[in-house]
Nucleic acid binder design. Structure first.
Lengths: 209, 209, 209, 209
DNA sequence: AATGAATGAGAATTCATTCAT
DNA sequence: AATGAATGAATTCTCATTCAT
C-alpha cells in the first residue's frame, strides 16, 4: 500500500502554496544550521526566499512553528528509513549498520543540496549540529533503538547509555565527515559501526540479565 | 613550598568583589546551561544574584565577556587534570579511563553544587550540553587526545573520528548520568571506557600503519 | 525642459514613506535645535511624529544617520543658492550681500515653518545655532567664500579670519533676528553686509599683496 | 584697595579642598571643551584628576553644578578686566580694542595652560567654542557692551546686533587663532578690531538717533 | 494571498548618583 | 573626606508580529 494512494491532484494555487511553504522550511533549515535558532531572525529566513515577511506569517503562525515544521519534516523523512531497518534487520549488527548508514546518507544529502546552491568562494559557514531537525531525527533513532533492545535483539546493556552513546558517535563523526572533502559516507559509517559493535561485548551487563 | 605562601590576605572589599564576580559567573553558568547563550539575558543572570544590572558591567564589559570567563574557568580547571593523566598514563587505556573519569567528576561536581542550591520542588530544568564552558573543556580534551595519539600511544586509527567519537560519548553519556539519581560517576565512566576501548581494536587502521 | 518631465507618479505607499521620512527629519531638526544633538533622544524625535520608535529605524539606521541626513538636506538646499551667487556676482560686495541674504532667507524659512506648527502659548524654546544642519550650511559658505577670495574678487586679507568672521556675524545676527518679532530678514542682512563690507578696507593686507 | 584684604589664611585642610575643587574645575573645562557637556561623563572628568568619583560629589552636588562653577569661574576672571576697560576707555575704539585684546589673552592663556600639559604626540583634539565657560564670558561682554553704548560712547546702531556680531567675530577668529602656531594674539585682535571699527560707521543708524 | 511599513516590548549597555566602608 | 562598587533609570537599537493596502 503506497502512500501515494492518498495523493489528491492539487490546483496551481495549492501547488504554489506548498512550494512556498517548502521554500521557507528549507531556508529556515539553512539559517538555523548556520546561526542557531535564537540568533536567526525571521528576516534572515525569508531573505533566502522570494517571499516577504508578511508571507511568512501566512504559512507559519510564529517563528517557533517553523521549527516544529522542520522537526516534523526531518522525522517524517527519517522514520520510514528507520522502520525499514528495524523490520529487515536480523540482528543488532545489521540494524545498527543500516541505521547509521541511513543517517549519514540523510546528513550528506541535506548537506549536498545545500552546498550545491552556495557560491563556492564564500567561506564555509560553521554548521551547528543542534538543529531542531536533527534533534527530531535523534529522537526517532533513540526510540527505534530502545524498541530493538526490548525485542531482545541486542545485549542487555544500559539502553539509555548505549543509545545516547551511539547517537552521539553518529552525530559527531557525521559532523567531521561533512567537513571533509570528498564526503565519505561509507568510511564514516564503517568507523561508527565498528566502534559501537566492537565495544558492545565489553559493556557491563545489566543486573536483570 | 606551597602556593599559599604567596597568598596575600584580602580586605573585605576585595573579598566581596571576588564573591560577587564568582556569583555572576555561577549564575551565568546556570542560566546558559538552562536557556543557552542567546536566549539568556543579562537580567536573567543578574536575577539569580543579589546584584543589579549595573554591577554586572562592573565585572564584565559585555555579555560575551562572561562567556569567555566561563570558558576560561572551565579550561583552567580541567587542563591540569588532563595534563596529569597524560603524564601518568602508561598506555592508552589508562589515559582514556583517567580522563573520562576526571571529566565526569568535573561534570558531577559542577552539577552537585548547582543542584544543592535549587529548591527541591522546582521542576528539573533541561540542561544544555553546548555550554561555552563545556565547549572549552571539550577543546582541551580534543587536543590532549590528539597529542596522545601522535605520541604513538594509541592505535593508528582515524584520530579525528576517534576523538570526536570519544568526546561525544563522554558528553552524552555524561548528560544522561546527570539526569539520574543518584549520580553514578563510576558506572558512567566504566560504560564509556569499556565502549571505547572495546571498540578500538575493531576500528579500521589508517593506511600508514 | 523642466525637471518635472522626469517625475514619476508615486503610489500612495511611496508617498506616505516620503512624508514619514520628512516628518522625522523635521522633528529631528526641531529637537536638535532645541536640545542639541547629544541631549535629544530618538524618542524625543519620534514623539513629535505620529510614528513609533521602530519606524524611526526603518528610515534611518541610527541616530547619527538622521544627523547626516539633516546636514545633507541643509547643504543640498543651500548649495545651488550659493553657486548662483558666485556666478552672478560681479564683485565681492554683491556676492556677500547675495549670500547673506540667501542665508537669512534660509534661516527664516525653516524657522517660520517650524514656528507655524507650535502652539502659541508654549514658551519659546532656546534655539541652538550649532545644529548639524547649520554646520553643513556653514561649511558650504566657507568653501564658497574661499573660492571667491582665491579668484581674486576679494581683497587679499587673511581669508580664514575673514571667512570665520563673516560666517560668525551672519550666524549670530541671524540668531538674534529669529528671536525678534517680526522677523526682519532685510534689516538683519543689511546690518551684516554693511559691517563686513565697511570693515573690509580697514583690514590689514596680507604680505603677498 | 586690593582684593587680598579679604583673604583669610587657610588651614592645610581647607587648602587641599580648594585645590581639589580647582582640579575638578580644570579637568571639567578640558573635558567639556573636547567632548561637549552632554558627551562628557563625570568619570571622564575625574579621570584627569587624582580623585575618585565619590570625591566629585563632595565638591559638587551634580554634574550641572560644575558647569555653573565653570561659568562663574570664567565670568569672575573676566569681569574685572572688562570693567577696567570700560572705566579706562575714552572712546568706543579703545574700549573695543582693549576688550578684544583681553578676551584673546584670556583664550590663549587658558589654552596655553592646557596645551602645556598635553603629550605632544597626541592628535590635537577639536576644541568646542560653546563651552559654558565661554558662554559666561560672552554674557559679560554683552552686558559691558550694552552699557558702553548706553553711555553714548558708541554710535547708536542696533546694539543687540552689534554686540552679537562683535562677540561672534571675536569668538570665531579666536578659535582660528588658537589653531595656528604660533598663537598670535596681537594679529588676531588687530583683525577683529579693524573689522568691527571699520564697519561701524557704515552701519544703519537707529531710528531714535 | 502578498507586501513591507508600523508597532512596541524587550535587549544590551551607559552613567549620574548613592552609600557602605 | 575619600573611595569605588552598587544602583537603576534611561538610552539606543532589534525583531517578532500585525495590518493597511
Amino acid at each position: 500500500m503506497s502512500q501515494t494512494a492518498l495523493v489528491v491532484p492539487l490546483g496551481k494555487r495549492e501547488q504554489t502554496k506548498l512550494q512556498n511553504r517548502q521554500a521557507i522550511v528549507e531556508a529556515a533549515r539553512e539559517v538555523f544550521g548556520e546561526m542557531g535558532y535564537e540568533a536567526a531572525t525571521v528576516r534572515d529566513i525569508i531573505r533566502r526566499t522570494p517571499l516577504s515577511v508578511g508571507a511568512f506569517y501566512n504559512y507559519f503562525r510564529s517563528k517557533d512553528e517553523v521549527v516544529e515544521a522542520l522537526a516534523e519534516d526531518g522525522a517524517r523523512r527519517f522514520q520510514p528509513i528507520l522502520k525499514a531497518q528495524r523490520e529487515r534487520a536480523r540482528d543488532f549488527e545489521s540494524y545498527i549498520r543500516g541505521s547509521i548508514h541511513a543517517y549519514f546518507e540523510f546528513l550528506a544529502d541535506g548537506h549536498e543540496n545545500w552546498e550545491a546552491r552556495r557560491p563556492a568562494d564564500e567561506p564555509l559557514p560553521h554548521l551547528r549540529a543542534d538543529t531542531p531537525e536533527l534533534q527530531a531525527v535523534f529522537e526517532e533513532v533513540l526510540s527505534s533503538f530502545i524498541e530493538v533492545m526490548e525485542r531482545g535483539q541486542a545485549p542487555k546493556v544500559d539502553a539509555d547509555y548505549l543509545a545516547a552513546a551511539s547517537i552521539a558517535v553518529a552525530r559527531e563523526v557525521g559532523g567531521v565527515m561533512l567537513r571533509r572533502r570528498p564526503v565519505d559516507v561509507d568510511g564514516a559509517a564503517e568507523f561508527c559501526v565498528k566502534l559501537i559493535l566492537g565495544g558492545l561485548p565489553a559493556l557491563p551487563r545489566r543486573e536483570g540479565d
